[in-house]
């Protein structure tokens, strides 16, 4: 019985790391532009289809899709923001909502047209691989996904913290007028933030492809999940995204053990409500800007 809970805890931590990658992307976009990316879950699903597609074509594990997902989703996010989204940054929020919800609907529609509505799962012998550590069985696919997610999050944090371009993202989030006054190309910076955020979502999708059956309508679940994590962890806080992701992952895993797998949303929303009541700023929220 004890083993069951420890197993759930480990599974929750592992999937939570991937959730954290999704939420980190959402938080980066919000932190820099104060724009909510309603198409975030759809971008995750693009990554899932890329993972599935590459596996079908080559038999490679979806983790090998990461470079493609990063580059592809970065290009898409950058291009969309640069040539469409930037015109909406200074507009009222409800106008932005329509734009990004529109983008979400378009992506889901395109998925439905290309792949159809049926779930597509990766069936490979590798999905039964396990590591045995101290009598525990750790799912290899999940462990690899979690490690890859942690590496990507760490790289993104380091880039934001130490590179001059990363600091320019902070600067634009902190004082847009000041950033423009010293010649920071804020259109480029906004597009970079969206590209990076989309790349996080896409890479997370590629990691999730072997764990969930991919279908177009999964997207809104991921968008909601990312919102919950971001609100639990704290808006615009990158450590908050990590903490929130792990907490939600663990809460869902315990739901599966204690009640049943379909009850996982009950637990994550329960967590959301508790945090909103006790700490409305989120666990690590209350500070402004990206990456802090």
């Amino acid at each position: 019985m004890n083993e069951l809970y420890v197993g759930a805890l480990i599974n929750g931590l592992l999937i939570g790391a991937v959730y954290a990658l999704i939420a980190t992307g959402l938080n980066l976009i919000f932190g820099v532009m104060r724009v909510v990316n309603f198409a975030h879950g759809e971008m995750v699903v693009i990554g899932m289809y890329m993972g599935y597609g590459l596996w079908r074509l080559t038999g490679w594990p979806p983790i090998a899709t990461i470079p493609f997902a990063l580059i592809g989703l970065f290009a898409m996010g950058y291009g969309f923001q640069r040539w469409i989204g930037n015109a909406f940054v200074a507009r009222p929020q409800h106008v932005q909502f329509v734009l990004y919800i529109g983008l979400a609907l378009v992506i889901t529609g395109v998925h439905a047209v290309i792949f159809g509505p049926d779930p597509m799962g990766i069936q490979s012998a590798a999905s039964f691989d396990v590591y045995r550590v101290a009598g525990l069985r750790i799912d290899a696919t999940r462990l690899h996904a979690a490690l890859a997610a942690c590496v990507l999050i760490a790289l993104l944090w380091a880039w934001l913290r130490f590179s001059l371009t990363g600091k320019a993202l902070h600067a634009a989030a902190d004082n847009l007028l000041g950033a423009r006054a010293i010649g920071i190309r804020t259109n480029h910076i906004f597009a970079l933030a969206m590209g990076m955020g989309a790349a996080c979502a896409g890479a997370a999708g590629a990691l999730l492809a072997p764990l969930y059956d991919t279908q177009p309508y999964l997207a809104s679940e991921f968008t909601l999940l990312a919102f919950i994590i971001v609100i639990v962890g704290g808006l615009a806080s990158l450590p908050g995204a990590l903490l929130g992701g792990v907490l939600v992952g663990v809460a869902e895993a315990f739901a599966a053990v204690v009640i049943e797998p379909s009850a996982k949303s009950l637990f994550s929303y329960g967590l959301l409500i508790i945090v909103l009541v006790l700490m409305p700023q989120g666990l690590l929220g209350g500070r402004q800007g990206a990456g802090r």
Partner: peptide, 24 residues
């Protein structure tokens, strides 16, 4: 170069990061 009204610094970044961004 433009030194804007109200300074418009990047308040949460360090002094040196503010300067470095000016030199980008």
């Amino acid at each position: 170069a433009h030194v804007p009204e109200g300074r418009q610094l990047f308040a949460t970044l360090s002094v040196e990061d503010n300067l470095r961004l000016g030199g980008h």
